[in-house]
Design a binder for these strands. Structure first.
Length: 570
RNA sequence: CGGGGUGUAGCUCAAUUAGCAGAGCGCGCGGUUUGGGACCGCGAGGCAGCCGGGGCAGAACCGGCCAUCCCGACCA
């Protein structure tokens, strides 16, 4: 029978261990494993042990408090989502490989949700609401499934995780904008309470849909997200969608006559530079891609820039792109490494970057093996079907207004907020409310996610030292770690238990290392590893006093029990 | 999905030329210790990822499969 409130370490499931798995490379993964917070089931699916789950719950509690503060209403939807809802919004195609599906015994198909827009919209459309019910915001905490091709980094990128996902329903865009702004402020506040300084960056909506969104990035050298912040701080943006000003090159040069010449060279950009003895930027880069329907798309860009495939997909109006094969390029009458927009007009959709207008008398391939063209000029020698920004920004590039420069950063994406607009409510039949004028109108929506486990990993990445985790007080699994030293002597154990009781009564959550079979050194090392903010030592040497030490400090002080309680209660 | 690894005890890792399956940590028992990862003794724990092949003999060689990690393309 167990009737204790405070947790005895001797009974805790999930003790510390000395070695982390050899394949754990990130500090958060190693430390959460060694301190007994998590264990792996299969790749990308984790057990949260009691200590780990407490930290997880602390994070969720703060998220919940802040969602509730702005009127969010917590609920839950089924984990298995009817697949026909995903077909209704065409996401079975756009999500692609990440969507997991499952059949029940009657062959009815479900999606294992990685997000739940359809479910919430389906619920709301069946509720038949009016403008009087608006606006509202409903959310849940639930396990999400993403069939990630590659899980990695412990909790940083997994296949199964708890996410808080919220969905807002507004009457129109004007009302929505207020909701979105409020949610943005709430997110900043949530992460601040969790100990994370986040940057809100513009990003791509991807398969979620909608027109704009923002990610919350916790800056970290091990983060997988690349983004840019301008030096003046006015622009922060994911690398996928970063805009920049293209500098003019030889724009004043006279146009020279177009010529095609023999060019025995390799197929890289550098081979072109070497052969012609001209700068990289004067070369034209051609990138042949294929969309999900098999349509060929030729991206053309200034040679010193790289094609951004996200931007290119947007410009082409498709979901996914792959590189064209050599056979596909040959079938067009061209040659890999020698592709040119000249003469391909009409055979393939040509998308050109505005950077092509910053150069004159460019050189590049001429659609034949060892054939190059020189003095190529846009509009005169070739035209593009679509002129659009398809370039990848780079550190040091000018912002669009030309007043600042972009600086590259890396971060862990811990949350994001999406404008969805009418994306779902127009695709899903009947997702309307009755407005004041008696007419049915679609809801204007947004959605908002926070990955709890990833946030936990981001916190550990930021708050640790050589000895272990240093939890911020708000998310620590316990407030105080009582360590008894010399347990068998002079009633130390009894005294420690008494202190634990008093702390609990004062509302302080206690983990009590009551083991009398390990040395003091082991207990201290474990306390450092687990990282609870306050360590309270009880020992015979201290008499009636206890020793208090903060995990994030090397200073100790001796206090009476009353002083201890009043200090920790704050 | 491309490239590169790795699969031996719960974890970290050994094992000469193929010749009885090993160590440290951890776990259990006994004892000595007790303010920064103490020590002694004893013990438990293994279908060597799976399947097949050649061989007197395989953890090791060959083939296939599976799992898993790292680097690239995608996401909370």
């Amino acid at each position: 029978m167990i009737d204790r409130k405070y947790m005895r370490y001797s009974k805790l499931v999930g003790k510390t261990v000395r070695n982390a798995p050899a394949d754990a490379i990130f500090d958060s993964h190693k430390l959460l494993y060694k301190s007994g917070f998590i264990r792996e089931s299969t790749a990308g699916r984790y057990y949260f042990l009691p200590l780990g789950w407490r930290a997880h719950q602390k994070i969720a509690k703060i998220v919940r408090e802040e969602m509730d503060r702005i009127g969010g209403q917590e609920m839950i939807v089924p984990v298995l989502q009817p697949l026909h809802l995903w077909q209704e919004t065409n996401r079975t195609a756009s999500v692609g490989f990440e969507l997991m599906t499952i059949k029940d015994g009657r062959e009815f198909q479900f999606a294992l949700g990685g997000t739940a827009e359809e479910m919430f919209v389906d619920l709301v459309r069946n509720l038949k609401l009016s403008y009087r019910d608006l606006p509202f915001n409903i959310y849940q905490f639930s396990t999400k499934f993403r069939d990630e091709i590659r899980a990695r980094g412990g909790l940083l990128r997994v296949r199964e995780f708890v996410m808080k996902d919220a969905y807002s329903f507004d009457r129109d865009e004007t009302e929505f904008k207020k909701t979105y702004r409020q949610m943005a402020e709430t997110y900043t506040k949530i992460f601040k309470r969790l100990g994370l300084e986040t940057l809100k960056v513009e990003a791509d909506n991807g398969y979620i849909g909608g027109e704009y969104c923002h990610e919350y990035q916790a800056e970290s050298p091990i983060g997988e997200s690349r983004f840019f912040v301008s030096e003046d701080g006015k622009y922060s943006v994911h690398a996928d969608v970063a805009k920049f000003k293209r500098d003019d090159k030889n724009i004043g040069e006279q146009l020279k006559p177009y010529r095609e010449i023999k060019a025995v060279r390799g197929t890289t950009m550098q081979d072109g530079v070497k052969l012609h003895g001209l700068p990289l930027w004067q070369q034209i880069k051609d990138f042949m891609a294929v969309d999900e329907n098999g349509n060929l798309i030729l991206a053309v860009i200034r040679g010193d820039l790289d094609v951004n495939e996200i931007k290119l997909a947007h410009a082409a109006g498709c979901h996914h792109l792959r590189h064209a094969t050599a056979e596909e390029i040959h079938a067009l009458g061209s040659e890999p490494g020698f592709i040119s927009p000249v003469g391909l007009k009409g055979k393939v959709k040509i998308i050109g970057d505005p950077s092509l207008r910053t150069i004159r008398n460019a050189y590049g391939g001429a659609n034949g093996l060892h054939r190059d063209a020189v003095n190529m000029n846009i509009d005169r020698d070739y035209t593009v079907d679509i002129e659009a920004d398809i370039a990848m920004a780079q550190s040091g590039f000018s912002t669009e207004d030309g007043k600042s420069k972009l600086v590259e950063k890396r971060g862990i994406e811990v949350g994001n907020i999406f404008q969805l607009g009418y994306h779902y409510t127009k695709l899903m039949k009947g997702a309307n409310f009755i407005d004041e004028d008696g007419k049915e109108k679609p809801y204007y929506m947004g959605c908002y996610g926070i990955g709890i486990g990833r946030t936990m990993a981001a916190i550990v990445e930021k708050y640790h030292d050589k000895k272990g985790i240093v939890w911020p007080e708000a998310v620590a699994p316990y407030d105080a770690h009582v360590v008894e030293v010399g347990s068998k002597e002079y009633g130390v154990k009894k005294k420690a238990e008494g202190i634990c009781k008093q702390l609990e009564q004062a509302g302080i959550e206690v983990l009590w290392d009551d083991r009398d079979y390990v040395s003091a050194g082991v207990k201290f090392a474990d306390a450092d590893l687990i990282g609870i903010p306050w360590r309270v030592v009880v020992s015979e040497r201290l008499g009636d006093k206890v020793e208090l030490k903060a995990r994030n400090s090397s200073l100790t002080e001796e206090l009476t029990v009353d002083q201890l309680i009043s200090k920790l209660k704050v």
